[in-house]
């Protein structure tokens, strides 16, 4: 996770309590289901989608582009993480 953030274009979601919970969910899914399926998606549905919902998932780029952070609130744009965006969601005027 750390290397992905260090090498990639995104930051971690700016609240450690939130990201810790997501990481615990990922570890749980790895232990229980063999892959780091996104904890914000139904695991059985994710399994049917192959690797698409394994973190970092395929939709996270579009999620971050749209709302500043991925649906699990693990990765965020650097702008969002820097606090320049409203944490309650994307600007309604966008």
């Amino acid at each position: 996770m750390r290397s992905y953030v260090e090498r990639g274009p995104y930051a971690l979601y700016p609240e450690p309590e939130v990201t810790e919970n997501v990481i615990v969910g990922l570890v749980h899914n790895l232990a229980e289901h063999g892959k780091m399926y996104c904890p914000c998606a139904d695991v059985e549905s994710s399994k049917a989608r192959g690797h698409e919902m394994v973190c970092p998932c395929t939709p996270h780029h579009d999620d971050i582009k749209r709302q500043g952070y991925c649906d699990c609130a693990l990765f965020a744009s650097r702008e969002f993480a820097a606090g320049s965006c409203d944490k309650s969601g994307p600007d309604e005027t966008e």
């Binding site: 609240e15 309590e17 914000c40 749209r66 709302q67 952070y69 649906d71 699990c72």
Partner: peptide, 10 residues
């Protein structure tokens, strides 16, 4: 407290 879960789908 800090809520956690899935993000709201805006």
């Amino acid at each position: 407290t800090v809520a956690f879960g899935c993000s709201i789908k805006w």
